[in-house]
């Protein structure tokens, strides 16, 4: 707020006082929200870290399994067996609220299938194929969990960043400026009061 634009009136002072009070309570609330979000973030961070480690391990295992199956059966056989996939896994997206942040909840169906429901014949395939399918089912499950947690984390981080910016703006810019303006108006009003007292005294002295 540029001080020159401010009208040093009593109503402006009352307005400013009201705004300062509102900003301070907003600042307090936002600080509480930021701390709450940080707490939530750290809670999810540990979980996400574990899931990411598991995801990396699942990816390595799945790669090893498919490499071994491709070596033993041939890529041709692995590809052909993959064609027999009957249905794709389905993903259902819903969400919930963490302190005003909408985070996703991913529910999946049809990722893990029993051996006899995978769509390929049992007799013409072997354990290399089964174990590759197992490993990839596990990998997809881990990807879904990681996607949910990491999106939650990303959204929380964005919100923390946004809240932090607001808190800082209130704390270091808005509230100090309002206080400065209030001080300026108060000073201006006092000045006006002093002037009018002095004027009254001069008028009184002239009359005497």
């Amino acid at each position: 707020m540029v001080l020159q634009d401010v009208k040093p009136t009593r109503s402006e002072l009352i307005n400013l006082k009201r705004r300062i009070k509102l900003s301070e309570s907003g600042h307090k609330l936002l600080k509480m929200k930021r701390d709450g979000l940080i707490l939530e973030f750290f809670k999810i961070l540990n979980e996400a870290r574990n899931v990411r480690t598991e995801l990396d391990a699942a990816f390595v295992l799945a790669t090893d399994k498919i490499n071994l199956a491709s070596a033993v059966n041939g890529v041709v056989a692995v590809k052909s067996t993959a064609f027999s996939t009957k249905e794709n896994p389905e993903i259902e997206l819903s969400g919930h609220n963490i302190m005003g942040v909408f985070v996703p909840k991913i529910n999946s169906t049809g990722v893990r299938k029993p051996l006899y429901e995978r769509g390929y014949g049992i007799i013409g395939t072997n354990a290399y194929i089964d174990e590759t399918a197992d490993a990839f089912e596990d990998l997809v499950e881990k990807i879904i969990t990681a996607a949910e947690l990491e999106t939650t984390m990303k959204r929380l981080l964005n919100e923390i960043e946004k809240t932090k910016r607001r808190v800082n703006a209130l704390e270091f810019k808005v509230i100090p400026e309002l206080i400065d303006t209030m001080k300026f108006i108060r000073f201006a009003l006092e000045e006006v009061e002093r002037e009018s007292t002095f004027r009254l005294k001069r008028v009184k002295a002239r009359q005497q």
Binding site: S84, K86, Y116, R118, G119, Y120, G121, I122, I123, G124
Partner: peptide
Amino acid sequence: LAYIENEL
């Protein structure tokens, strides 16, 4: 298909 594959 799985049944047919096994039967084949």
